[in-house]
């Protein structure tokens, strides 16, 4: 007997492959992106403060999704891409 696989599908076409530029985490501008869940911002603020012992932090900025339940808006993603070399995301809790 032959059955149809209920999980079968075709892989969606992916976006173009992006070559990442190297990041100097000791000096480069860094975005700290919160998923807007409670304590995400506080976690990132604590990390930023600790990084101050090793590097300048005036070019480390906070960004956040509008809502914990929705994807990051396009403008936030574009802002990260345009203004920062690295991003630290607090998203998985």
């Amino acid at each position: 007997m032959r059955i149809v696989n209920p999980t079968f599908g075709l892989a969606a076409a992916g976006g173009p492959k992006v070559d990442l530029k190297p990041v100097n985490w000791a000096t480069d501008a860094i975005a700290l992106v919160s998923n807007s869940k409670p304590n995400a911002r506080e976690l990132l603020a604590g990390i930023r403060e600790k990084l101050g012992a090793f590097r300048p932090i005036d070019n480390i900025e906070f960004l956040a999704k509008n809502s914990a339940s929705q994807p990051a808006p396009k403008d936030v993603i574009e802002k990260v891409a345009a203004n920062f070399r690295g991003a630290l995301l607090a998203i998985a809790d």
Partner: peptide, 9 residues
């Protein structure tokens, strides 16, 4: 990316 151990999977 920071994840908790529970949400790593």
């Amino acid at each position: 990316m920071i994840a908790t151990e529970t949400f790593k999977p």
